[in-house]
């Protein structure tokens, strides 16, 4: 993971996102207007968060099957990174909502899902801090990580479809989503590179904090 090439790709893609995201033409839609550009930032935050939390999940499962202190470091640092992206996702979404919906926050299935995600992973961090024994900490927090992740995926992905609750969020309840906007395919040219760029950035930040944590653990020994 120390190779330079993917970090270079990440930087190039993000610079491209910032430049093209603000300058490329977007479809002129009522209410949304230029706020549609938030797609390149807000939506990508959640993609990056889900990616890095999935990595964390994989390492938690690995850790339960085959206990290893290093897996625990990877899982926990990925969660911390994922939280940072989650908070940015909330902030960008909230700003956008203020200008399009007229409120910072509304009671909506997607927004509830976001809050529950953040709260349960904060609980993960609190849980880790409440234990001193390293072995116990890694096992118990892996169990909680798997539990929380599955509950969230069910709640965010499956629940809104079953419960027939309408959402005001784009892509739900009659509101056009991304696949409607991209008919002119200008947005697609920015959106896909943006997703890849932000996901790579999350991986980069995570690898840095994993290495930092490894050094800390070595120093403590």
């Amino acid at each position: 993971m120390r190779a330079v090439w993917w970090k270079a790709i990440c930087v190039i893609l993000l610079v491209y996102t910032a430049v093209a995201g603000f300058l490329m033409p977007v479809p002129a839609l009522p209410i949304l207007h230029e706020t549609i550009r938030n797609l390149y930032f807000h939506v990508c935050m959640w993609f990056a968060m889900m990616f890095i939390l999935t990595v964390s999940l994989v390492y938690s499962i690995k850790n339960l099957r085959n206990p290893n202190p290093d897996y625990d470091i990877i899982a926990s640092q990925c969660v911390t990174t994922g939280m940072a992206f989650g908070i940015l996702g909330l902030i960008t979404g909230s700003l956008w909502a203020r200008y399009t919906w007229g409120a910072w926050w509304i009671n909506d299935p997607k927004l509830n899902g976001a809050v529950i995600t953040l709260l349960s992973y904060f609980a993960y961090i609190v849980l880790r801090n409440s234990m001193d024994d390293e072995q116990k900490k890694s096992r118990v927090s892996a169990v909680y990580n798997i539990f929380a992740y599955v509950m969230l995926v069910v709640f965010v992905m499956i629940y809104p479809r079953l419960s027939e609750v309408d959402s005001l969020h784009p892509g739900n309840g009659g509101n056009p989503g991304f696949n409607v906007y991209d008919l002119d395919s200008h947005m697609r040219m920015v959106f896909y590179p943006a997703v890849i760029g932000w996901v790579l950035l999350s991986a980069w930040i995570a690898t840095l904090s994993i290495r930092l944590e490894r050094i800390k653990q070595l120093k403590n020994q």
């Binding site: 509830n112 809050v115 529950i116 709260l119 349960s120 904060f122 609980a123 993960y124 609190v126 849980l127 409440s130 234990m131 001193d132 116990k136 118990v140 169990v143 909680y144 539990f147 929380a148 509950m151 069910v154 709640f155 629940y159």
Partner: peptide, 23 residues
């Protein structure tokens, strides 16, 4: 069972279960 492993007692239990109770 998770909270019993940590040293937070009832407070830890509520912190880890409330978010997951919301759904």
């Amino acid at each position: 069972s998770i909270a019993a492993k940590g040293a937070g007692g009832f407070a830890l239990m509520s912190i880890i279960s409330f978010p997951l109770l919301i759904p």
